[in-house]
Write a protein that binds this DNA or RNA. Sequence first.
DNA 1: AAGACGAAAGTGGTTGA
DNA 2: TCAACAACTTTCGTCTT
Length: 327
Amino acid sequence: MEGLQGKDEEKHTSGGTSSDTVCCPECGSTQVIEDAARGERICAGCGLVLSDHRIDTGAEWRVFSHEEAEARSRVGAPMRYTIHDKGLSTVIDWRDRDTSGRKLTPTRRSEIYRLRKWQIRSRVHGSIDRNLAQAMSELERLASQLSIPSSIRELAALLYRKSIIKKLVRGRSIEAMVAATLYAACRIRQKPRPLDEIADASRVDKKKLGQCYRLLLRSLRIKIPLSNPIDYIPRFASELSLSSPVQLRTIEILKRSREMGLTIGRDPLGLAAAAIYVASILLDERRTQREIAEVARVTEVTVRNRYKEIVRVLNIDSQGGFGQGHQ
DNA sequence: AAGACGAAAGTGGTTGA
DNA sequence: TCAACAACTTTCGTCTT
């Protein structure tokens, strides 16, 4: 059981990050040819086989429509990281009937009863599994409360598995670690949520959450770039029910702000909020500083400060245009 | 009266000795 | 490990719409 888990993690580590920048030990070339048919990777420089027996995870047939893709799916349920046993274990039904629906004989029945008991024990009693089972239900709760899509949940679950293997959870609360992985997953997928929002939804305080998050980045060696204010815009705009022109203008403002060096060292949330504020005024869909500050989870003061800087540096006048040119 | 503005003091995190 | 520091928050009084 333990062995299997380890292997799976490895396989998926390289999958998402595309960190395949191997160089050939013979000639140092970084050009690699993938020979999917043979399952080999070959150096383009000298022809050395770098690795073989790769598993082709793709389909071995082509499909031409969605229905066809559905129909040709491989057997079984998809493997999922949010289920603590990855959805792969066999479940013994609680009904005392066999596959054809007949009632079981008393001896057979007690046998099944025993099997069922041991199955449950073995599933939930390993310390890792028990932890995971608890963590996954917490993850599910947290994610659905924040309405985070399942693809991000899966990523969070994967991160959590890794952190268990690295023994990061020991001595820390499961909740805090789960929240941290979820926060990280959101940022990796460029759908960042404010730290406060996740802290509020879980019972973890912001400080602990931040600590766990940083630990996660350090020990799992993941690099997550600073969150981009633009990533917040669609969500904030919809919460403020602002039209899409306002969103576009906001993004434009943010891009220009970045060019002008306004963004360095600044809280992305504050920037996003201020840019929305400016755009909402320019396009006559005014929202108050308070409203915007609330959805962005910063204070009005911060919105004001960023707003003043944006207006000053980008030469925006009250007429609605950008003052092009002279700075 | 609500919103916007600005000053001043407080807070938590980062940096460099 | 500690102090300095920048960014942000809290609080509050004043001005504007």
